[in-house]
Computed example of a mutant assay.
Amino acid sequence: MEKIRFQSPDGTVEDFYIEEQTRIGGVAYLLVSDSMDDEANAYILKDVSEDTDSEAFYEMVEDENELQAVYKVFEQMLEDVDLEM
Rank of each mutant, 00 (worst) to 15 (best):
T22W: 00
I44K: 03
M77D: 08
K46V: 13
L78Q: 02
D53L: 06
A40V: 03
E59T: 15
I18V: 15
D37E: 09
Y43C: 02
M36H: 12
V48M: 12
S33N: 11
V73T: 07
T52H: 13
M60W: 00
I44D: 01
Y29V: 03
L45E: 00
Y71S: 04
M77K: 11
Q68V: 10
D34F: 05
A69P: 00
D51H: 07
E75V: 04
K72P: 00
S35T: 14
L67R: 13
N65E: 15
E19N: 10
L30F: 07
F57K: 15
R23G: 00
A40K: 13
E66D: 15
I24K: 05
D37N: 14
A56F: 14
D15F: 06
Q76S: 15
E50A: 14
Y58D: 02
V73A: 06
D63A: 13
E19D: 09
A42Q: 09
T52W: 14
L30V: 10
L30Q: 06
E39D: 13
D15H: 09
E66Q: 13
D47F: 04
V32W: 00
K46D: 06
F74V: 04
A40F: 05
Y29G: 01
L31C: 04
Q76L: 14
D51W: 01
F57C: 10
L45I: 11
T52V: 12
E55T: 10
Y17H: 12
D47H: 09
V32M: 07
N41C: 07
F74P: 01
F16L: 09
R23L: 05
E75W: 07
F74K: 01
S54W: 07
E66G: 07
D37P: 00
E64L: 09
E75Q: 15
E55K: 13
A40D: 03
